[in-house]
Design a protein around this nucleic acid. Structure first.
Length: 402
RNA sequence: GGUGGGGUAGCGAAGUGGCCAACCGCAGCAGACUGUAAAUCUGCCCUCUAUGAGUUCGAUGGUUCGAAUCCAUCCCCCACCA
């Protein structure tokens, strides 16, 4: 078993907030003395079952807790998912059916166990306790929090000041999350920095229920592919855990140079010293930034698909984009053996959503047939097996007459 | 319940009877340059059987030669007051 100092160093790496270091040390000491693992809580929203690298930041942290011998208590917010969380923007999320929530939860777990150790993970659904909760209990729970407290939360106060709507449901959400902590007797709760308020509220509510308050730790929010906003599904700037190796690699390569260090740290958990060494190598010209990013891409792919897949994705990428050759696996599109206009062909091949879009692509000079630029939108052709249509840098389709 | 302000393309935001498929910004797509990085420049950015046609400005109905713009009804959103 690791010593207290070793555990503390590993556990607190890369964190942003920690409330508090002393409490954590005390708890770890007690855990070691009593040989009793700590219970590390994290909650998940099952409305969006696609895990991406942003989620991995916290999952990595949980894994590090597990490596120190602790137990992860994962809470799937199926109850809250069925209500429909309107948080964030004004758009109210759709209410999910019970079946859908369960289906999402299943998929969620499959993905998260690519990082977490199932043997040291407890999974709970919060409908276990909220499903049976009566309204008087809800009211009593709300008595522990004041509106002023809730308004202290950054995004609430901003929205309130800007006369933007805040739904009462949103006010209730932090309470729901806090009560989860009570029910699972969490020792520590992890979340993104945007969760700080909710996590801290968990402490208050635990105290109100006679429990020792959980230790709260927040992790940085990983910026997405646009380099500005946090990685999220709704912004479409994400790399999904379930993306193909090719996509993971390609998307990683499109991350800006400045940002790639964050990925080394938060996705791969590379120690700060190693990152500093890499940075120095790039700064001195000893290594080309492209090669460092290639290494990042390979390792990210390897994390989810194995070393071999990483190497392969890297090689394929070099072939297609550096040497400008055709990819090895081009999706085939079956077309009847009759004359067809280039625009309709592209739509059929999935290279454009409409003929109007196809027309624009041709006019922009983005479309090639067997690597020869198509100049005329009215071009008609007899389909022939094996002809490759190319649209831009990423769109490929091979014709199959049938 | 009352008062006021709103609903325009993915988002933000102009437009208040014809010059509107609708200014502009962001996002996105493509081209050039590259390291599929960043930055920059250029073009595009509702659909179609496409130098033309069709369907759009919360919904429906109306006025008009002509409506995103005017009228009526309805639906939805927000703030403040209660």
């Amino acid at each position: 078993m690791m010593t207290l100092e070793q555990q503390f160093a590993k556990i607190t790496a890369r964190r942003v907030d920690l409330h508090s270091a002393d409490e954590l040390k005390n708890r770890l000491a007690k855990s070691i003395a009593e040989k009793k693992p700590l219970r590390i809580k994290m909650g998940a929203d099952p409305s969006a079952p696609d895990l991406h690298l942003g989620h991995c930041v916290a999952l990595n942290k949980l894994r590090e807790f597990q490596d120190c011998g602790h137990t992860v208590v994962f809470i799937i917010g199926d109850f809250t998912g069925m209500i429909g969380d309107p948080s964030g923007k004004s758009a109210t999320r759709p209410q999910l059916s019970k079946e859908k929530v369960l289906e999402n939860a299943k998929s969620y777990q499959d993905q998260m166990f690519k990082i977490l150790d199932p043997a040291r993970t407890e999974v709970h659904f919060n409908s276990e306790w909220f499903g049976a909760m009566t309204f008087d209990k809800v009211i009593r729970l709300s008595a522990h929090v004041t509106v002023a407290q809730l308004l202290a939360r950054d995004d609430f106060s901003k929205r309130y000041a800007a006369s933007q709507p805040i739904s009462l449901v949103e006010f209730l959400y932090p309470l729901v999350q806090a009560y989860d902590s009570v029910m699972v007797r969490a020792d520590v709760e992890i979340g993104g920095t945007d969760q700080l308020f909710n996590l801290l509220l968990g402490r208050e509510i635990q105290k109100a229920h006679g429990q020792e308050p959980q230790i709260v730790m927040t992790m940085p929010l990983l910026e997405g592919l646009d380099g500005v906003n946090k990685m999220s599904k709704s912004l479409g700037n994400y790399i999904a855990v379930n993306d193909t190796p090719k996509d993971v690699f390609g998307k990683t390569m499109s991350v800006s140079d400045d940002l790639m260090w964050r990925y080394f740290s938060l996705v791969l958990c590379l120690p700060d010293e190693e990152i500093a060494a890499l940075k120095a190598a790039v700064a001195s010209g000893a290594r080309h930034p492209r090669d460092v990013k290639d290494e990042l891409g390979r390792r990210v792919v390897a994390k989810f698909h194995g070393e071999a897949a990483g190497a392969e994705a890297s090689a394929e990428f070099a072939r297609v984009f550096s040497q400008n050759q055709l990819p090895t696996d081009i999706p085939e599109v079956v077309v009847p053996a009759e004359k067809i206009g280039i625009l309709n062909l592209m739509v059929k091949a999935g290279l454009a959503p409409s003929t109007s879009e196809a027309r624009r692509l041709v006019q922009a000079g983005a479309v090639k047939l067997d690597e020869e630029k198509v100049a005329d939108v009215r071009l008609e052709l007899e389909p022939k097996d094996g002809v490759v249509i190319r649209s831009g840098k990423r769109g490929f389709a091979k014709i199959k007459v049938g």
